[in-house]
Amino acid sequence: MKNVSLKKIIRIAKYLAIFYLSIGMIALAIPKLLEMQFRVDHYQAFIPLAELPKSTHMWSFFGRSYVYNLFIGLTELSIGILIIFKRTRLIGLLISLGVCLNIFIINIQFDMIYEVVRHISIDLFLTLILLIEYRKDLYQFFIGLGGKLNGEVIKANSGIWKKLRIAYVIFFPVAYFIFSFVVISMFDYNLIGSYEIKNTQIENGNITFDKGSIGTTPMLFFERNDLVVLSVNDSIHYGWYEIEEEHLRMNFRPSKNH
């Protein structure tokens, strides 16, 4: 009797979780389809990028493309529908896992902790709980059968091809990591950044700069890949720089008005 009652409670809790997740996904999808989400106040569109909070930056970025919102909205809508039906529930849960993980990381990294606590962590947790029921089938299909439906368990091949694949998986990521690390080690991160020009002297003579086309003051920007940008006198100038011992050399391409 106790086992029967426990099974009924688990079954009810399971369907409550399914409908909670479905309602949440549909409620997130419809506003995207109607351009109700990712709206930014007009005045914020004129705030310099560096002065925007991370959450507003992310919000405005996603709001730039209706097609992207349409894609995400239809994806969330499909999740809300697919998980209701037993035959399509696994497909919906697998899509939900990818979507929820993506939103979870985005919200954390863009300082939207309130959204993490409010709904996405719950949706992610429910998706993982509901997927537990399929754990053996998922392992058998994706690992045991390698994604095939012919019922034949995949066995590891022997020979040179197997060794080449193992070598590739081990050495290529490591080699590319080393290559990338060498590339970024060439950048001087103590120099890279944004600088306000306070005073400029050439041969003991002062030069006065007015604000450029970027920001509200004369600015100098050192970027990666040796790019330097000078923003002065309502203009912007692009060039490149190099460091030789204690000397910094900058060269700028000619601009139209200077």
Rank of each mutant, 00 (worst) to 15 (best):
V4H: 06
V4N: 14
I12W: 08
A13R: 02
F19L: 10
S22C: 13
M25V: 02
L28I: 02
A29I: 15
A29M: 12
P31S: 00
R39Q: 05
V40T: 14
V40I: 12
H42T: 02
I47R: 01
A50G: 04
L52K: 15
P53S: 03
W59A: 08
F61D: 05
R64N: 08
N69L: 12
N69R: 12
E76G: 05
L77K: 01
I81Q: 07
L90W: 14
I91P: 00
I95C: 15
S96G: 14
L97V: 10
L97G: 10
V99I: 15
N102Q: 15
N102L: 15
I103N: 05
I105A: 14
I106G: 10
F110K: 01
F110L: 06
F110D: 06
Y114W: 05
E115G: 06
E115V: 10
E115Y: 10
V116A: 09
R118W: 08
S121T: 13
I122K: 00
L124S: 11
T127W: 09
L128Q: 03
L128V: 13
L130H: 04
I132M: 12
R135Y: 02
L138D: 04
Y139C: 10
Y139N: 06
F142S: 13
K148D: 05
N150K: 03
K155V: 05
K163Q: 05
L164M: 13
R165D: 07
I166G: 00
F171E: 03
P173N: 09
V174K: 01
A175K: 09
A175W: 07
S180D: 04
V182R: 02
I184S: 10
I184N: 06
S185A: 14
L191S: 10
L191D: 07
I197W: 02
T208R: 06
K211C: 07
K211A: 15
I214D: 13
G215M: 08
T216C: 07
L220Y: 02
N225W: 11
L227F: 12
V229C: 00
L230C: 06
S231K: 01
I236T: 11
H237E: 08
W240F: 13
Y241R: 08
Y241I: 02
H247C: 07
M250H: 03
P254R: 06
P254A: 08
H258Q: 04
